[in-house]
């Protein structure tokens, strides 16, 4: 559905996208994971034909977003990261407006948005600007779906949305995927990555890896420990000073410690920490999650540069 090869997009000073290549298959739920400022929105804008790029090759359903932008705009549903509907129009007015622009009717594709729409229907006469964050997202999704797009581009749809609404939102995406819509979604939340079929990790305009969440985790080949002690701050600085340690990041109340040597054990870590006078030390060997993998790939990239 989407084919991006060696894409480069520069703004005056910064290179927002640096040699990006990725592929999204038909009917896939594809996640673009990366911190703020990584280039997620820029990539979305290029794919949705809103932004011209400098180098590389981009194809959306076999169409070029530069020359064939009209065909692409007819076919995609794009939901920008910032709420972009008319705040002074009500839910119903916004929907009618977008259906009119796409020369369709609300009734025609109602089955597609029904599940979502029924949740916001009780407020259908309320201005969009007065809706809660979760309802705004649902409305925006409805508006992106009214013309039955083949490809749905969602730029950080869950940012600023409460935990319950986030889970609901991903449930909705799964149902849409079952209806054959290809979905590309970006998020800064690593925990949402495992909900996608395949993910691309992006950092500073570069793709660090494209794989299934499991596949990404498999690239993490080093021993990983969750470490806890009384003095959290000196714990993390001591671990970072240790030359056996590859990296140490805080992760909730734990420090996730990655070791250089494949044969490192929890015992080793404990004895090091005792030598540094830490009390109530707990060290557990754990398996990596997407965030650990992200940090690891980022570190590897920095080292190789």
């Amino acid at each position: 559905m989407i084919e991006v090869r060696n894409l480069v997009k520069r703004f005056a000073e910064v290179t927002a996208l640096n040699n990006v290549s990725l592929q999204v298959d038909d009917g896939e739920l594809f996640g673009l994971i990366g911190p703020d400022g990584a280039g997620k929105t820029t990539l979305f804008r290029v794919i949705s034909s809103l932004l011209l790029f400098d180098e590389g090759h981009v194809e959306v359903a076999g169409k070029n977003p530069v020359s064939d932008y009209a065909a692409i705009r007819q076919m995609i549903g794009y939901m920008p990261g910032k709420f972009s509907l008319y705040q002074d129009l009500s839910i119903l007015e916004n929907l009618r407006f977008f259906t009119a622009i796409f020369k369709t009717t609300l009734e025609e594709n109602y089955d597609l948005i029904k599940d979502i729409y029924v949740q916001i229907e009780p407020f259908k006469h309320r201005p969009a600007g007065k809706l809660s964050g979760g309802m705004k997202q649902k409305l925006a999704l409805c508006c992106a779906l009214v013309h039955k797009p083949r490809l749905l581009l969602l730029d950080e749809p869950t940012t600023g949305v409460d935990a319950v609404s986030r889970i609901e939102f991903w449930e909705i995406l799964k149902r849409l995927k079952q209806q054959g819509i290809t979905i590309m979604v970006s998020t800064p939340y690593m925990d949402e990555a495992s909900l996608c079929e395949r993910i691309a990790l992006i950092q500073q305009g570069q793709i660090m890896g494209v794989d299934s969440p499991e596949g990404i985790i498999k690239t993490f080949s080093k021993p990983l420990f969750a470490v806890k002690a009384d003095d959290f701050y000196s714990l993390i600085t001591d671990l970072r000073d240790w030359n056996e340690a590859l990296s140490a990041f805080s992760f909730g109340e734990y420090v996730h410690l990655t070791m250089r040597s494949e044969s490192s054990t929890a015992m080793q870590v404990e004895s090091y920490l005792f030598s540094r006078n830490h009390s109530s030390v707990s060290v557990k060997a754990i398996s990596a999650n997407v965030e650990d993998s992200f940090m690891y790939l980022m570190l590897k990239k920095e080292e190789s540069q």
């Binding site: 705009r73 995609i76 910032k82 972009s84």
Partner: peptide, 12 residues
């Protein structure tokens, strides 16, 4: 407001 972005991706 950002609404122009939403309009721009439509075939209008």
């Amino acid at each position: 407001m950002g609404t122009i972005e939403q309009i721009n991706v439509t075939p209008i």
